[in-house]
Amino acid sequence: MSTPDPTDEDTWDVAMVAEYGPELFNYLRELEAKYCPYPYYIPQVQSEITWEHRATLINWIVQVHERFNLLPETLFLTVNVIDRFLSRRAISLSRFQMCGAMALFVAAKFEEINCPSIRQMAHMVSNNYTVDELLKAEKFLINELKFEMGYPGPMSFLRKTSKADDYDSEIRTLSKYFLEITIMDARFVSSPPSWLAAGAYYLSKRVLQQGSAWTDIHVYYSGYTEEQLVPLADMLISCCLDYETHHKAIFDKYSGRKFKRSSLFVREYLSKWRATASSL
């Protein structure tokens, strides 16, 4: 994307400063490469921690994140901080939950107006670590990452892509569900957030059966063609088929009214899809 969309009314709204949009999002695409974790840090960096341990930790973080009612950006930054830290520094399994808790604590400070206190975080880890231990861990973590917290999470790219459909709330909510399940999967650790956001949005339109799923305007705002997104959409579907072992906490979270029961909708959709496929 090199120039603003001339057919978009925001292009001519001075308050929207649309002329800077292309440069801003091109810069975000540079940052997503800069803040990309090492995809093979397990087992090449970590000797005690497995991908199963990571999945258990992220599952716990999703529940703590929801309990504090934090922003989606905080969740994605937390996971990125964990993966980048573990890409650089080997830790023991006994310190793994501490790492996750402090990653969430740091991410909340960066993204939220009101964030959890250090004593609340100590309570979340069942007071297995003292407040002093947690604060030392926080200092160690941010020093190891050189205070670089400007990760451009997928929500920024999702908002941009959503413009192609005038920010349709049903598509966006369903997209958030598909986006969140990617944090549970080792295959997506180093995936560009712009690609994940575009793939989640593409699959949402396909599931909702909204006509031609991917038009030129979607390519314009997302930066990805349908051919680039189909493999990702297929992977997301396979994750949803195995939701009980793949992302149970996220499934439960998105089964409520707050998220329009998106996970239940997807389960029903896939059930009908499988029944149709088996009858052919």
Rank of each mutant, 00 (worst) to 15 (best):
S87K: 05
R274K: 12
C239D: 07
L236R: 00
P231A: 12
Y27W: 14
R187C: 13
P37E: 04
E268V: 07
S255K: 00
C240V: 01
A137M: 10
E9D: 09
Y40S: 11
R159I: 00
D234K: 15
Q209S: 14
F178E: 00
P6G: 08
Y201T: 02
T56I: 15
R206P: 08
Q228D: 14
G199C: 07
V125T: 07
I91N: 01
T3H: 13
Y221A: 03
E66M: 09
Y151K: 02
C99E: 01
N143Q: 14
R29I: 08
L31N: 05
V189L: 13
T50N: 09
I58R: 02
V64W: 00
M235A: 12
Y201W: 09
F259M: 12
Q209I: 04
Y129S: 05
I183A: 06
R54Q: 05
Q210G: 14
A277T: 04
K160Y: 03
S162N: 10
L134W: 08
L75D: 01
Q63F: 00
E170A: 11
A90L: 05
K272L: 15
L174M: 15
G223N: 02
S238I: 06
L93N: 06
D5H: 07
K146R: 11
K139I: 14
F105V: 10
G100C: 02
L104E: 03
P6L: 12
W195S: 09
Y41H: 10
